[in-house]
C-alpha cells in the first residue's frame, strides 16, 4: 500500500493507463445518463440505445455557431440518411438555464426533424469527457463505435460515410 502514499507512483500509473489507451480504439458502452425531453420527461441514454440499433448522438448548444451549422447541414440530408440506413439522429443540447428557453422555438423555427433531448447540467458531456461542442458519437447496439469533435463545413459527408460503414 506504499503506492498510495506516493503521488509520483500514482502519476506514473495513470500516465501508463493513458499511454496504453492511446494505442487502442475502445468500443465502450454508452454511459447511462438521464436526459430530458423537450416536454420535461426523463429519458435514459440506455433506453434510447436499446430502442435504436444505429444512432448518432450529437452534443450541441443554441449559442454554438458550428453546432447550428452542423445541424442545419444534417437537416437538409436527414431524410435520405434515414431512408438509406435507418439511422436515428439525436441532437442533445447542453444549454443551461441561460439559453435553454431558446431550444424549442429554435428547433421548430428551423424545422429540424431529428430528435432533440436536453442535458441540462452537462452530465452526458462530462461522461463523454468533452469540454467543447459539437461532439458527435455513433452508437451501434449500445456501443460507442465512432467519435468526432468539432464541425467543419462539409463534414456531414464524412459522417455519412461512417454511418454507411456501420449500417452494414
Amino acid at each position: 500500500m506504499f503506492i498510495l502514499n506516493s503521488a509520483i507512483m500514482n502519476k506514473k500509473k495513470y500516465l501508463f493507463i493513458l499511454f496504453l489507451g492511446l494505442f487502442t480504439q475502445a468500443q465502450s458502452p454508452l454511459p447511462s445518463i438521464e436526459l430530458k425531453t423537450l416536454s420535461g420527461q426523463f429519458i435514459n441514454t440506455n433506453q434510447i440505445a436499446q430502442e435504436n440499433q444505429l444512432m448518432i448522438i450529437s452534443l450541441w448548444a443554441t449559442w454554438c455557431v458550428p453546432c447550428k451549422n452542423e445541424l442545419d447541414a444534417v437537416a437538409e440530408v436527414y431524410e435520405d440518411w434515414v431512408s438509406e440506413t435507418d439511422v436515428k439522429y439525436f441532437a442533445i443540447s447542453i444549454d443551461d438555464s441561460r439559453t435553454s428557453k431558446r431550444i424549442k422555438p429554435m428547433v421548430d423555427g428551423k424545422g429540424w426533424e431529428f430528435e432533440i433531448l436536453l442535458d441540462e447540467n452537462s452530465e452526458l458531456k462530462r461522461a463523454f469527457g468533452v469540454s467543447t461542442v459539437p461532439y458527435t458519437v455513433i452508437v451501434k447496439n449500445g456501443l460507442m463505435v465512432y467519435k468526432h469533435t468539432g464541425y467543419t463545413p462539409g463534414y456531414e459527408d464524412e459522417l455519412y460515410e461512417q454511418i454507411l460503414k456501420f449500417s452494414q
Binding site: L18, L20, G21, A26, S28, A127, F128
Partner: peptide, 10 residues
C-alpha cells in the same frame, strides 16, 4: 477493462 474505461485528457 479497456472497453469499460472512458478516458479524456485536456
Amino acid at each position: 477493462f479497456k472497453n469499460n474505461l472512458r478516458t479524456s485528457y485536456e
